[in-house]
Design a protein around this nucleic acid. Structure first.
Lengths: 340, 340
DNA sequence: CTGAAAGCGCTTACAG
DNA sequence: CTGAAAGCGCTTACAG
């Protein structure tokens, strides 16, 4: 069965290709009666326009790419939902690209997206080489960043979160409870994790707390990583009295390790996360953490992207929206029993 | 700057369009020296083939669609990861379609996918109208189902999980602990939730336990739904001694409600989930549940789909793979204090 | 190993 | 309001 094309519709209806095309694209200047007639034939013949032929000229795919670190992390799944829900409403479809924090995969995805000529890209918290960003810009593809900044491109649209301030909040809280030996669970380098680490370090310094590299873990990605790392930490009797995790996903893995080792939170060790994912409120010990509005972050960035796509001429101010953190105090921290 | 096309490459190299095309597609029968020469020019001119023109004839997009209920549910995010990881390895990209369990959205996605001429579809646990399946089949689009069956299409490829057996396991366990008044937290209708409910009902019947519609909740979707439903249940002093939730996501919301109402698990109420998501092992009370290998389910279905796509002639047996459930006993259930 | 021609199924100017 | 022609940037089938 050969494919039905607009030519068939044209022949059947007695109108020209162009008129059929007009009806298809809901353009003006078509007499109502001819419109109806053509619509009926389209329906009868079950015709559907060919995606590729259509885009060969007009180049609008109504799909956008969302690039993120790890969909298994609830922070990202909630953020994705924020993006997808909004785009769905606007009749766009989204291509979700899961990089596993691997910059090579990330690059491959960006190239794939570009070659599929998607209408825009949302890049969530990943630090890719300047060259890659350059490519996106030079192709004139609308781009919105979430929670990353690029020094070389200060004008990029960005929905930001004050991660620095968040970690200051977390560290100050722990220090106010008398903790000085605080272990920091670091995230992968491709994340802009440096500003978080800096918030932590600066706060320790401010309080004249001496620290060294042993206060920082290797880069961790998953729940399981958090688990393994903290288990080792406990086994080595390091003497830390508190832990800050770069995100709740890892914090929850850490919490599991503490319990599996026969210890308790916060009795033996205090723990603070980052994100406030759902599961932190119903974890073994409700987790004290810094809340980040993941769903809204996603939604905001989607709104912004669509606005850029649909009004290419409107000069949207490259205003960075920065969302403020809030410390959610639950039960995973307590005063240090043995202050120095 | 006008777009660079293969014509430019042809002119520059002195070869024909076809030869350039051959190099691009890595076809045989190109002299090595000409290949190198053309490759160099492609590189120099920074040429990239146009996605739409390319597919206008050959119709291979190397992208597949994954349709699921709710990416926020960890079961689905883990499953997605299984799919995406495998496809990424095989150099396919995946389009994730989040339906929020809405069959209209689901239908719209399927149409969008078809019109984008994706290479295949994975449909995860959603029951859509026969007409929709018909459309996919008639377009000859490779399809793999996860955890749904369609009576009208017994020959569809399907990676299945024995949900019926799983709920029998759960119900038997609770009954063996002396529970008879067991509340069942039902999922959305678009899921093939009937077989789970049936496993539960049949087991009650087998033990001659009398039950009625009050044993079943309204269809629930999210963590928050589970929370609200169980809160109401407790407030109404219904007298249930145990709860089975259609998935862990909802079970965890239920758990939160129990604690927020000042009760405890399993002291006041026993709870069983379904899926064994990560967070169930580190929840307020470690959750007893039925494990389902979400990541593997995703991976298996992706493997199967690619096999169908790349060997369209090979008659893959429409063998349903059925994965067996296992009860994971943790701490959320205890013997009923007041057996009838 | 290489190429000239036709075609994929639409849309874009342009003309009326 | 409507249409004929050219073109988008590739690939296919055929010929040599």
């Amino acid at each position: 069965m050969p494919k039905i094309t607009i030519k068939d519709i044209a022949v059947e209806s007695g109108f020209s290709l162009k008129t059929v095309s007009r009806v298809l694209n809901d353009e003006k200047y078509v007499k109502n009666s001819t419109k109806e007639k053509i619509l009926k034939i389209i329906d009868d013949l079950n015709f559907e326009p060919d995606y590729f032929a259509k885009n060969l000229k007009s180049k609008k795919t109504r799909t956008i790419g969302l690039i993120l670190g790890d969909i298994e992390n609830p922070y990202y799944s909630s953020l994705s939902k924020g993006v997808i829900d909004y785009l769905e409403m606007r009749d766009y479809t989204t291509m979700l690209c899961n990089t596993n924090y691997n910059s090579e995969i990330c690059n491959r995805y960006i190239n794939a997206l570009i070659s599929k000529e998607i209408d825009g890209i949302i890049l969530s918290s990943l630090k890719v080489p300047d060259k890659t960003i350059d490519k996106i810009i030079s192709k004139n593809i609308p781009l919105v960043l979430i929670e990353v900044e690029y020094e070389s491109f200060p004008d990029l649209d960005c929905i930001n979160f004050d991660s620095y301030g968040a970690e200051v909040l977390a560290a100050e809280y722990l220090i106010s409870l008398g903790h000085e030996r605080i272990f920091y669970l670091v995230g992968p380098k491709i994340l802009d994790v440096d500003v978080r680490v800096k918030g932590f370090r600066d706060t320790l310094k401010k309080h004249r707390i001496i620290f060294d590299n042993s206060y920082f873990s290797e880069p961790l990605i998953s729940f399981e990583d958090g688990y393994a790392c903290v288990k080792k930490m406990i086994e080595s009797k390091s003497g830390f009295t508190a832990i800050i995790a770069v995100n709740d996903f890892i914090a929850l893995g850490a919490m599991k390790a503490v319990y599996d080792m026969g210890l308790e939170i916060p009795r033996d060790i205090s723990l603070i996360g980052f994100d406030d994912i759902k599961y932190s409120s119903i974890s073994r010990v409700p987790l004290t953490t810094v809340s980040e509005p993941d769903y809204e972050l996603g939604r905001l960035s989607a709104e912004r992207l669509i606005r850029k796509i649909e009004n290419p001429k409107e000069r949207i101010l490259p205003r960075k929206i920065t969302i403020k953190p809030a410390l959610i105090i639950r039960d995973s921290c307590k005063p240090n029993r043995f202050p120095n």
